[in-house]
Design a protein around this nucleic acid. Sequence first.
DNA 1: CGATTCTTTGAAAACAGTCAATCTGTGTGG
DNA 2: CCACACAGATTGACTGTTTTCAAAGAATCG
Lengths: 192, 192
Amino acid sequence: MFEAFESYLRGKAGLNDDEIESVRAVCIEKKIRKRQYLLQEGEVCHYECFIAKGCLRMYGVGDDGAEHILRFAVENWWISDRESYNNGTPSRFNIDALENCEVILINKPDFINLLTTIPKLRDFIDGLLARSYDAIQNRVMSAISYSAEERYQHFISRFPDIFHRVPLHMIASYLGVSRETLSRVRSQFVQK
Amino acid sequence: MFEAFESYLRGKAGLNDDEIESVRAVCIEKKIRKRQYLLQEGEVCHYECFIAKGCLRMYGVGDDGAEHILRFAVENWWISDRESYNNGTPSRFNIDALENCEVILINKPDFINLLTTIPKLRDFIDGLLARSYDAIQNRVMSAISYSAEERYQHFISRFPDIFHRVPLHMIASYLGVSRETLSRVRSQFVQK
DNA sequence: CGATTCTTTGAAAACAGTCAATCTGTGTGG
DNA sequence: CCACACAGATTGACTGTTTTCAAAGAATCG
């Protein structure tokens, strides 16, 4: 399971053998079954989490009990509640597995330690965070300026891999429309 | 004008006299009149920008010509198109002044230099970016799960200072509703 | 096979957008 | 100082979209 993370760290962050070893020393390998939680609302997020295999989602539950999906994450992505992780506050979100997953956890003190001892890693992670900021900003832009159909098409073209792995009603939740509306949007779309 | 930035850097980032001096050396003070652009669509964003005085907005223009406001920024905030700044790509957004403003610009090479020579500053900026990520994630959450009225109330309670400084039709644009809808939401709200 | 999950469809109601008109306050030029 | 233009806010009537509720048709899994 660690191999996936190792080749990611070598390829994307440019780590060498020694650095890989110090990362490996603090990694916790974990398997998560479909429908299991990685993090539950109210808990504090203590870990960074790299996905070696599988697919997870992060979502919040509204006052009416409806689930609102903030993001999906698949192989070679990271997932955690950064707000809870950074501030040590209870999370308002849930993270659970949509498939059987293999993930790698690094707890916060260990991770901070890695970042300070491996500057290359810190630069890489900072770059990642910058790009996730861009991504989420684009999502705000589509939320306030595109129609449901445009948001759907945008999602398909941007995340074809995720699109064919998760149920449609979850994509509807991610896009901020009801599953019925998404269904209708799709059927109109097929006719064209 | 620099004084505002100086006390910000001392208070929030904990910089000392020497560090303040090296920051000052690369700062560009600039006044921007109401309605003037700080950045126009198509340009590359070369600067970090700290707001000493005034209020600006960042927005994108849709295919139909409608303006969609991504964020507002007031005193002691930073504003720039990070995507363009980081990647050196042309910006898809505009930034312009809603009031006469005084801003401090630091160009990218100088800023990178500051970050490497003043680790305290890098830690501080990283913390800022982390918090803006949290903020924008919360905005996505409200966009996909709250009604127009709830988003409006949330905006008022979260940004009372901004609320009374910018015209309502811009808040409507920020919230992703038409100005007429916001107007009606408000009048219903008054009756309660 | 039966149970669950997922997707689609229909009809009614709630909601938001558009277009056009009006009202307000602000500020500028004559 | 007044008149006028202009930006901003509101309202009404209409249209179009989205949600909701209920039902039923696929697909998947044990």
